[in-house]
Design a protein around this nucleic acid. Structure first.
Lengths: 155, 155
DNA sequence: CTACAATATCAGCCTAGGCAGATATATGTT
DNA sequence: AACATATATCTGCCTAGGCTGATATTGTAG
């Protein structure tokens, strides 16, 4: 299996790792700016990281525990505890101890959380569309497949 | 110009933003692990973030100031000051006040920095090749072009 | 030349993630 | 049942980035 890069010809500024890191920074920064600027959401002070957690709770079907979220998001467990503290304090999320396995804490979006969600999602979709400007749907599918493969290769 | 995503059909888990954020986390985590595990580099305690700065100093031709690096890397200026403090403390980088514009501080890799660089680069290339496993060179070029376009769209 | 704006670096404060260790619960083994 | 092992959450500590304001220097308008 052929390697993509070799040391002799490797161009850091054009490498996929470099570009991806920068795009990620810029995209989350844009999301943070626009979440903070929104008339309704600014009161909640929702950050991009908090939004990403809300997506997993509201935007996906199955019930999630804190550790599920850590796996879903490549996120540290200690950091997740405090993340949920913040979301709970803002009234967006509820903790519910699982009765079958009392180690688990299931998480649930509150009414307020579900109410705020559509606007957050709208902003996130708009930001992504802006970054994908000029691409055909076929390009976006390819890009998505490349990223999915890389995530798979991460093991 | 058509939007890629619309709210009704948007699937968070398959979105490019979500996937990219996760791939970036996994890739830098892998780089950190392997930099820390390397026999020669572990003594220096070089992190992925520090490596990225070294790339800009050793791996590119032109002389760089701290603020150049901030622009190159979408990095905060205050954080960059401390980043350079750490690299200087490890003996990998030198500060040199510019005589023409005394606000500027040019940065230069030391002998030790240049000596350690090839091995860092080797590890970085290996990590990226692992994440790109199974892709044809044509796919990697496409992926790179997509990312470059997104970075351009960031403005 | 002076006043004012722009730029580069730096220092202080705050926030937040990673890691190690503690506790509680569950699972598997003997 | 007793014990060890694994898992989930939480807490304390450390590191590091973002933001704000301070200082020094440069560029610019009058």
């Amino acid at each position: 299996m052929a390697n993509i890069y070799d040391i002799e010809t490797y161009e850091p500024s054009e490498s996929i790792g470099y570009l991806m890191t920068r795009v990620k920074v810029e995209m989350l920064a844009a999301l943070d700016r626009e979440l903070a600027a929104d008339a309704h959401l600014s009161a909640l002070g929702v950050t991009s990281a908090q939004f990403v957690v809300m997506v997993r709770l509201v935007g996906t079907a199955d019930r999630k525990s804190a550790s599920d979220l850590c796996k879903d998001l490549s996120y540290d467990a200690g950091a997740m505890t405090r993340m949920i503290d913040r979301l709970e304090k803002k009234g967006l999320v509820r903790r519910m101890r699982c009765v079958k396995d009392r180690r688990l804490i299931y998480l649930e979006a509150t009414e307020a959380g579900r109410a705020a969600y559509p606007r957050m999602l709208e902003i996130s979709v708009a930001v992504q569309n802006r970054f994908l400007r000029g691409m055909e749907p076929q390009d976006a599918r390819r890009l998505r497949d490349y990223l999915a493969r890389m995530l798979h290769n991460a093991g």
